[in-house]
C-alpha cells in the first residue's frame, strides 16, 4: 500500500511545548470563560462553512432518527395486531371508545414492553454472575473429589 498523504490541519503546533501551553488543532479559538472552543471567534467565511457542516450533520441525524422510528412504528403495528383481542372480536376498539383511551392503552403497553426489556437485560446480567458462581462451585467440587 502506498503511503497516504497527511491531512492538512487547520492550525498546527508541535505536541511538545511550554508546560500548560500546548496548542490545540480546533480552528475555533478557546472561550476564556468556559475553556472550551468557541465558534464565535471564527471569521464570517469560516463560520458559514462550519454552519453548513453542522446543518448537514443535523440533517443526517434527523434522517437516521426517522429511519429508526419508521422501523419502530412498523414494530408497533405488529404489536397492535397481537393485542387486538383486548378490544373486541373484530379487532376494533369498542364503539364510542375515545381515541385518547386507545392511545393511552397503546402507550401503557409500550411502557410495559420497555420495562420488560430492561428487566430482561438485568436478568441476563445476573445470569452471567450466577453462571460464574456455578462454574466456580463445580471447579471446587472437582478439586475436592480429586483430593479424595
Amino acid at each position: 500500500m502506498s503511503e497516504p498523504g497527511s491531512a492538512s490541519p487547520p492550525a498546527g503546533a508541535p505536541a511538545v511545548a511550554a508546560p500548560g501551553q500546548r496548542k490545540r488543532l480546533s480552528p475555533s479559538p478557546e472561550d476564556p470563560q468556559t475553556g472550551r472552543p468557541d465558534p464565535a471567534g471564527l471569521s464570517p467565511h469560516q463560520r458559514a462553512l462550519r454552519e453548513a457542516m453542522v446543518d448537514a450533520f443535523n440533517a443526517k441525524k434527523a434522517r437516521r432518527f426517522l429511519e429508526r422510528n419508521v422501523g419502530h412504528i412498523n414494530v408497533n403495528r405488529e404489536m397492535s395486531e397481537g393485542i387486538k383481542f383486548l378490544f373486541d372480536e373484530k379487532g376494533l376498539a369498542p364503539e364510542n371508545m375515545p381515541l385518547e383511551d386507545v392511545i393511552e392503552e397503546r402507550r401503557r403497553v409500550e411502557y410495559q414492553i420497555k420495562w420488560f426489556e430492561a428487566v430482561l437485560a438485568e436478568l441476563r446480567n445476573r445470569l452471567i454472575r450466577v453462571k460464574e458462581i456455578e462454574d466456580y462451585a463445580f471447579e471446587m467440587l472437582a478439586k475436592a473429589s480429586d483430593d479424595d
Partner: peptide, 20 residues
C-alpha cells in the same frame, strides 16, 4: 469543534477531538 476547514469546505474530523 473538531472541524477541518478548507477554502471551500468544512469537515468533521474526530482526530482533532482526540488531539485536543
Amino acid at each position: 469543534e473538531a472541524f477541518e476547514l478548507g477554502e471551500d469546505y468544512a469537515l468533521l474530523e474526530p482526530q482533532i477531538a482526540w488531539h485536543d
